[in-house]
Amino acid sequence: MFAITAVAILVVMALALARAFLGPTLYDRILAVNNFGTKTVLLLAVMGFLSGRPEFLDIAIVYVLINFISVIGILRFFEYAGKKTAEEEA
């Protein structure tokens, strides 16, 4: 049963990656990458149970926080980049 869940999560990760490649705007790509990250956390938790090693959960906890901080960091970076191009256009 864990294997089925893991496969489903992997399929969703593939769909998120497809959106990251297709995404017309920058923010679509960021959204897809964020979604990919949250699915990675779920996959880590399920893999911990699948292989009978609950130590994976510690990595999952850290990954939740790192994923959040990296998305906020990327948004911060492109927030200023967007403003700069807007000023250049004006």
């Binding site: 089925i4 489903a8 399929v11 969703v12 769909l15 959106r19 979604n35």
Partner: peptide, 16 residues
């Protein structure tokens, strides 16, 4: 677990 997988898959499809 199955219901969660279904909702994850639905979200992935909606994303596309």
């Amino acid at each position: 677990l199955l219901a969660g997988s279904f909702f994850c898959f639905t979200g992935g499809v909606g994303l596309l």
